[in-house]
Design a protein around this nucleic acid. Structure first.
Length: 815
RNA sequence: GCCGGAGUGGCGGAAUUGGUAGACGCAAGGGACUUAAAAUCCCUCGUUCCAAAAGAGCGUGCCGGUUCGAGUCCGGCCUCCGGCACCA
């Protein structure tokens, strides 16, 4: 052991040792309980940032802690390697996305290893590897078979300048993230995954997510957006067709004064002869605030009261939700109200508030009593709703339906750097799936990336032209690639296997499968920005894979920890703001242990972490002091082989330190177990070090306590700061590795304080304190409190009304 | 607009079921060591009154309530952050 704490030197030394010793490799072991600890894998941008450091430090502490608790821990890492930045780099610098990506992976892997994270690299996943994306294609085929993958026309975000489709995430304030052109909606034929098939199950499953943050579960519920209502058919005067609408408020059916169709509704095109006028409404479709409508000239008949009501086409009606047509009740819906005011349509009140009546300035959307509603007048609206539904269903006017806001997942991307969709188009046979034995459909390397738009795969003759698997005739391949969210929807399943080719087909219905052994993920850790997208897609995939027979569970992630952002000066770290802290600099300056310690100490994991250069110094000082004290007493410690636990024969100061050690073991353990409160766990270890510093050992038994305390502190600290603890552990004469040690245990008897402080309150105000022995009777405590000198002075001649004793804590005297 | 979350010293944050508000760390001030600086160590550190100490008053966004006792529970607001948003 050297005098100076040199993090760089010892960290590199142990990282090499651990790597050579293969200390993190994981094997199936049915004798031990498994624990699957997973952090969201990174996009290989080339450099890790503070968000990664924090995310992976949290995961690493959990993985190491669970390992020491005796669990068989799976702790893998990989790369979300497909995606646009690689393509953009290729366009800008002329380097192939593949080369760029693998270079970045190389670099980031070094950086992660430099942080001392305990990953089993034998299970590394790289999504742009054909061995991986082959299974994306296989899942696609399975879903195609089951009708869960299908192709349809739909509106997509289109950037006219780049001439390409953009994902929703790539549209910022209705503009293209790259060229800032205004994005338009374009109708294109695209592949979809039928996630809506599982809408109800995904919603129900939310209640099972006990280990998830409530807000994430709520966001998922809102996103799925279940709406229960009724579909009602209205006859249209003069034509045969019925007009079907969806409403959640059948209690307002008597207040309908007009109908609205979405501009894309089939009837709109049929009823409006002037196409230019219809197009002008279409142009205002969607997110416009202004309500625009066009009278069709046709009337519908309200099946409940035979009212004749005009039919409009309106820009605020969405084709994608419900039936694309609505009944408008301006008295009880604010949007309908605005529309009615603008086009001077009648407003008919059918619900009044139970107590008061007032002049209408806006729609009354709350519950109330029905009026002007025929046989239903006088009913409360919630009861009327049920009665009217019953009536409608009996008469055959319509039926109860459930609608969801959740849409099917559009996975087609006109991009190069992604998984090819395994579909072939044949002039004779139409859409033909690639045969399973022909997987993977390899993404060709020799393509030109210009950034001009359109998939570069269209230019690759060798890729494009193929034979039809059905008739053998000339055919061509699908050139769209899959959304990269497909890759991340099942990567946690791929980790269940070691690197190399896998064969999932043989895992179906195999009860001994690795997947069934490791899944579900016991602890998942990542940013809250994935609350809906990635986490929802993964829940969907897990259900699809369950129905294929690969899994016997429905929820992939038992417990979810969403860590906060790393912020500086109140803003998220970003290049444009110039407030980025480079982890490389931090590691170079202070070492990995300090970087890890600070990012875990400064805030609880779920909250935002405010960066502070000075705070890092504080974390460094703690490790420095630990090093210093062990170095100072190195000879004595090494010559002491006893570790004493027997508090009875000790001097008071040694007994105190021994007690504090047990208390710290308890505090650190419970803080980790209780919602991973690492910040308070670290604070407790700092307190213990403070006590060690002021302890002056003299006798042999003092030294035995000293060694006992240091060893336990090292064990407690080892998941947080693996390098320094390993170094000191070995320097004290122990064998490596400290991670093969058991997590320490505390003795409740020793941890108990000999004397406790009793607080004396008078009328709820702190007035005095007494030292007492725990376990003395309530009567005695009362007596001691009243007879206390200071209490007496305050009470004076006043009468004592009541004395409340909280055992072991305080006495409150009411006068 | 709707749905969440959060407001505690100069700062990051503690306070497990209502029971000593401010643990731990940072910053600041003072001191020791040193030719000097850095590093290290020691002391002080919510605020007001008082020269200081002792002591007392006030204090967890604001107003009110429940309670012997409220940062914590209840009612009504304010501010900030996040998500969704013409979903009929």
């Amino acid at each position: 052991m050297e005098e100076r704490y040199d993090p760089k030197k010892i960290e590199l030394k142990w990282q090499n040792y651990w790597a050579e010793d293969n200390i993190y490799k994981t094997e199936r072991d049915s004798l031990r309980k498994k624990f699957y600890c997973l952090e969201m894998f990174p996009y290989p941008s080339g450099e890790i940032h503070m968000g990664h450091v924090r995310n992976y430090a949290i995961g690493d502490v959990i993985a190491r802690y669970k390992r020491m608790r005796g669990y068989n821990v799976l702790h893998p890492m990989g790369w979300d390697a497909f995606g646009m930045p690689a393509e953009n780099a290729a366009i800008k610098h002329g380097v192939h996305p593949s080369k760029w990506t693998y270079m970045n992976i190389d670099n980031m892997k070094k950086q992660l290893n430099r942080m001392g994270f305990s990953y089993d690299w034998k299970r590394e996943v790289t999504t742009c590897n054909p061995e991986y994306y082959k299974w994306n294609q296989w899942f696609f085929l399975k879903m195609f078979e089951k009708g869960l993958a299908y192709k349809k026309y739909s509106y997509v975000n289109w950037c006219p300048s780049c001439a390409t489709v953009l994902a929703n995430e790539q549209v910022i304030d209705e503009k293209c993230w790259r060229c800032e052109s205004v994005v338009i909606q374009k109708r294109l034929e695209q592949w979809f995954f039928r996630i809506t098939h599982y809408a109800e199950e995904l919603l129900q499953g939310c209640d099972e997510l006990k280990g998830w943050p409530e807000r994430v579960v709520l966001m998922q519920k809102n996103w799925i957006g279940k709406g229960e209502g009724v579909e009602v058919d209205f006859a249209v005067e003069g034509i045969e067709e019925k007009l079907r609408i969806f409403t959640t408020r059948p209690d307002t059916l008597f207040g309908v004064t007009f109908m609205c169709l979405a501009p894309e509704h089939p009837l709109s095109e049929k009823l409006i002869k002037d196409k230019d006028q219809l197009d002008s409404v279409k142009a205002k479709y969607g997110k416009e605030d202004e309500k625009v409508g066009l009278f069709t000239g046709y009337y519908a008949i309200n099946p409940l009261n035979e009212d004749k009501i005009p039919i409009y086409v309106a820009n605020f009606v969405l084709m994608e939700y419900g039936t694309g047509a609505i009944m408008s009740v301006p008295a009880h819906d604010q949007r309908d109200y605005e529309f009615a005011k603008k086009y001077d349509l009648p407003i008919k009140v059918v619900i009044v508030p139970e107590n008061k009546s007032e002049i209408m300035k806006e729609a009354y959307e709350d519950e109330g009593i029905l009026i002007n509603s025929g046989q239903f007048s006088g009913l409360r609206s919630d009861i009327a709703r049920k009665e009217i539904i019953k009536f409608i269903e009996n008469k055959g006017y319509g039926k109860s339906v459930v609608n969801y806001k959740l849409r099917d997942w559009g996975i087609s991307r006109q991009r190069y750097w992604g998984t090819p969709i395994p579909i072939i188009y044949c002039n004779k046979c139409g859409i033909v799936p690639v045969h399973e034995k022909d997987l993977p459909v390899i993404l060709p390397e020799d393509v030109k990336l210009t950034g001009k738009g359109g998939s570069p795969l269209l230019e690759s003759e060798a890729f494009l032209n193929t034979d039809c698997p059905k008739c053998g005739g000339k055919a061509h391949r699908e050139t769209d690639t899959m959304d990269t969210f497909v890759d991340s929807s099942w990567y946690f399943i791929r980790y269940c296997f070691k690197k190399g080719d896998i064969y999932l087909k043989s895992e179906i219905q195999n009860p001994e499968s690795e997947i069934k052994y490791w899944m579900p993920v016991d602890q998942y850790i990542g940013g809250v920005e994935h609350a809906v997208l990635h986490l929802l897609y993964s829940r969907f995939f897990t259900r699809v894979l369950r129905d294929i027979g690969l899994l016997n569970i429905s929820e992939p992630f038992q417990n979810l920890l969403t860590q906060g952002m790393v912020v500086k000066d109140g803003a998220k770290m970003s290049k444009s703001k110039g407030n980025v802290i480079d982890p490389n600099y931090l590691i170079e300056e202070y070492g990995a242990d300090t970087s890890r310690l600070f990012s875990l100490f400064a805030a609880p994991p779920e909250k935002d972490l405010d960066w502070s250069d000075k705070g890092v110094e504080g974390a460094y000082r703690f490790l420095h002091r630990l090093w210093g004290i062990v170095y100072r007493y190195r000879d004595k410690i090494e010559n002491t082989r006893d570790r004493t636990n027997n508090i009875l024969n000790l001097q008071p100061s040694a007994a105190g330190l021994c007690r504090k050690t047990h208390q710290t073991i308890k505090k650190v353990t419970t803080d980790i177990e209780r919602e991973y409160h690492f910040n308070t766990a670290i604070a407790a270890m700092m307190e213990l070090l403070n006590e060690i510093t002021s302890f002056e050992p003299e006798s042999d038994s003092d030294w035995a306590v000293f060694r006992f305390t240091i060893e336990n502190l090292l064990l407690l600290l080892s998941p947080f700061c693996p390098h320094i603890t390993e170094e000191i552990w070995v320097a004290m004469g122990n064998k490596p590795s400290i991670f093969e040690q058991k997590w320490p245990e505390w003795d409740e008897e020793i941890a108990k304080e000999e004397k406790i402080e009793l607080v004396i309150q008078v009328n709820g105000k702190l007035r005095s304190k007494l030292m007492i022995t725990p376990g003395i009777s309530e009567e005695e405590i009362k007596k001691m409190a009243i007879e206390d000198q200071k209490t007496k002075e305050i009470i004076g001649a006043k009468a004592i009304k009541k004395v409340i004793v909280v055992k072991g804590k305080l006495v409150n005297i009411v006068i």
